[in-house]
Design a protein around this nucleic acid. Structure first.
Lengths: 235, 235
DNA sequence: GAGATCATCATCGGATGCAATTTTGCGTTT
DNA sequence: AAACGCAAAATTGCATCCGATGATGATCTC
């Protein structure tokens, strides 16, 4: 069983996929034994996978109480966007200064895929593709640290969208990704940064992040349900 | 043994301390059993600690071949500084806009400690304090993600300094931290950012990051030794 | 009948043991 | 004498096992 080496990574990816595909919702419990049985390995491997996801903040792990998919508060969501506004404009600015033709081609191909999903109305698919777009940019810097950071922020954003989006298709306003790619292609560093800032602000504004009443929010959270105004959610 | 819960964290901190204190040099091997015996726990805990450090890039873990303290290449070091120049100016800019008097007081107290260490000539202590300064800034943003990122970048910088510093006291040019704190205190966001950019560029410039011959570098890496001009290293 | 205490169950935390892989040391061969 | 190959030792990878902890439900008392 030589290929069992990478099982832990596979488990992590499957869980992440499930989150991006909205099959695992915020607050969902992840028991070690269930996962171990599912993947045909011992709990040891599952624990490693969960520990790593916990370090990335995708799941929360409370001692002796198991781990569950993270449930970002409204404040968490706002913070995530604040950090993204600090980092991602810098990323596109850097990329614009480099003028990498191959990168621009890859980005444009990706935009086509995004648009196709948008037309089809494939919501969860579009959500995932939107995430991929931002991760492609981060990876293109060639700085693995940045790629990991953005991946983490992106995953957290995905959970926030699940919890606090008003209508299901809030994930990605059309054309804004296009404009960013155009600015990168044209080498307009500051413009690319500005467009990214605007884009992130726009996405955040579409969410319902103003807590109606704090008590309602915490109660809903305690019940493992999304606050009012969020997507319907079932077990 | 209820307090054993936090043993893993303790092990991590001890290892980090040893790195910051230059008692663990880049490339040093960390065998699980040795650590387990040292801390009086089983390998299970040690493995968790090492796995987490590996995720942060502080140590590298190769399957079936153990884990050792990371040995950043010159390129790694340059990338680290590049990312720091992207992120940390944004951090101080944000802090300057907030004008948090309590924070400024804490920072000034820290500067005193730094200066005292500089006068005493306590090199490794100064190296650690320098790191703490940057981490204090990141933590002050209130964004845990940023704090973790900077902690990671800082640790990597520390390893890079160990490997590529020309003289032992290259860690922190005097007065530059002071100027940054002053700009934050005065609410001069853009100036604080500029000072931070300059500071990071300055620290990087003091290192010997221009590979003499690329081939020599890769050979040295293959041998698990630091390139010429770096600190002596055994094992 | 309501509340509190206690027992049982599920689940996690950590240690130990065994198989697999790598490394090291030694003997043999050319 | 140097290089190759084999065997022993060291070290890691993973699974299983047992104790601990928190949650659930039943019983007992007032």
């Amino acid at each position: 069983m030589a290929s069992q080496q990478a099982t832990e990574a596979r488990i992590r990816e499957r869980i992440m996929d499930a989150i991006y595909g909205c099959r695992l919702e915020p607050g969902a419990r992840l028991t070690e034994e269930a996962l171990a049985d599912l993947f045909g390995v011992s709990r040891t491997i599952v624990r490693q996978a969960l520990a790593r996801l916990a370090q990335d903040g995708i799941v929360v792990h409370r001692p002796n109480r198991g781990t569950q998919v993270a449930t970002p508060t409204r404040k968490d969501a706002q913070q995530t966007f604040a950090v993204r506004r600090m980092v991602e404009p810098e990323i596109v600015s850097l990329l614009a200064q480099r003028s990498d033709a191959a990168l621009v081609r890859r980005l444009e191909r990706h935009l086509d895929t995004e648009n196709k999903a948008r037309e089809t109305g494939a919501d969860t698919r579009l959500l995932r593709l939107t995430g991929r777009f931002h991760m492609m940019l981060a990876e293109a810097t060639g700085f693995p640290v940045l790629a990991r950071l953005v991946a983490e922020l992106q995953a957290f954003t995905c959970l926030s969208v699940m919890l606090y989006s008003r209508s299901a298709d809030d994930a990605s306003p059309p054309c804004e990704h296009e404009a960013i790619v155009a600015a990168i292609a044209g080498g307009e560093a500051e413009r690319a940064a500005e467009l990214m800032r605007h884009h992130l602000t726009h996405v955040e504004a579409r969410l319902n992040l103003s807590a109606p009443v704090d008590e309602v929010d915490t109660l809903a959270k305690a019940l493992g349900m999304p606050p009012a105004g969020a997507l319907a959610m079932r077990r």
